[in-house]
Design a protein around this nucleic acid. Structure first.
Length: 269
DNA sequence: CGCATTTGACCGGCGC
DNA sequence: GCGCCGGTCAAATGCG
């Protein structure tokens, strides 16, 4: 089911290893029939601070039923969303790290409304911030726990994943990370079918959250793609899925459905 | 029985 | 240096 959109994703989003992973917002509420579009929900946030620029959010959110007949296939949905929604992301400076500054150029794909904008980064580090913005990881949870909402909002996206970002430094040199993509879905089920086969290899309790974070690896040989799945602390209805790496194969669905897998079938990368 | 999941241990980075 | 934490490993357990 390779599509132009997929080709765009594959070639445009991640062909450049230095390009940051992208964060999108999608909603997959259960119990609806087919792919539909709904107005933005509370999952969409706008960040603002002295070090963070504004995130723009979806004008519409694709939704997909858990029992959908269209394979519950996220890739389809994401692609659909990309063709119907404006997806942007917050960008912010990594004020903890030194002076690798933010990209100055943005790429735009698609026609009509802005489908997806990509910020070119000189370092993958920044993109980690992106991912963790989406995540609501431990740092924000710690800040959130027992402290005022005001303080939480002030620091929310700055503290997310800081330790992780610093892990990227090795003797003053940045460690190159696999490209990442993080998106948020509204779903009752934690693991959404994205067309690939995953094996769980770990689970961690996230501080100040009742929901654990699960770690998955792609089961395909030689494919080192990983994904993390967790529920948003502030809104347990939301599932945060973070992909890391590029698949070196086609989705299993395609392999089953077709004998002619194409590189363009590669979901995200 | 084979494979997937669970779960405690372990490791490395980071802050204090 | 120590403790905390995220991420991973791997033995134990569960399940079809």
């Amino acid at each position: 089911m390779a599509s132009t959109s997929q080709a765009m994703l594959n070639q445009g989003l991640f062909e450049d290893q230095e390009a940051p992973p992208q964060m999108g917002f999608f909603s997959f509420p259960p119990n609806s029939g087919s792919l539909t579009l709904i107005p933005p929900l509370g999952c969409l946030k706008t960040f603002s601070s002295s070090t963070t620029t504004t995130s723009t959010l979806l004008p519409c959110i694709p939704t997909l039923n858990n029992n959908s007949n269209i394979n519950n296939n996220i890739s389809e949905t994401l692609l659909s969303s990309l063709s119907t929604a404006t997806t942007t992301y917050s960008k912010h400076r990594d004020h903890h790290d030194d002076q690798d500054h933010l990209p100055s150029s943005a790429y735009h794909f698609g026609s009509g409304p802005q489908l997806l904008s990509l910020q070119r980064s000189t370092s993958n580090l920044w993109s980690w911030g992106e991912v963790n913005d989406c995540l609501g990881s431990k740092r924000s949870s710690i800040i959130n726990g027992g402290e005022s909402d005001h303080q939480y909002h002030d620091h929310h996206h700055h503290h997310l994943g800081l330790s992780t970002m610093k892990m990227k430094k090795i003797k003053g040199r940045r460690k190159v990370r696999e490209p990442r993509f993080c998106f948020k879905t509204m779903s009752e089920v934690d693991v959404l079918d994205d067309g690939y086969k995953w094996r769980k290899y770990g689970q961690k309790v996230v501080k100040n959250t009742q929901h654990p974070r699960s770690y998955y690896r792609c089961t395909q040989d030689n494919c080192r793609v990983k994904k993390r799945v967790e529920r948003l602390a502030e809104d347990p209805r939301m599932v945060i899925t973070t992909y890391e790496g590029r698949h070196v194969h086609s989705p299993s669905h395609d392999l089953e459905d077709s004998q002619a897998p194409s590189p363009l079938n590669n979901f995200f990368w």
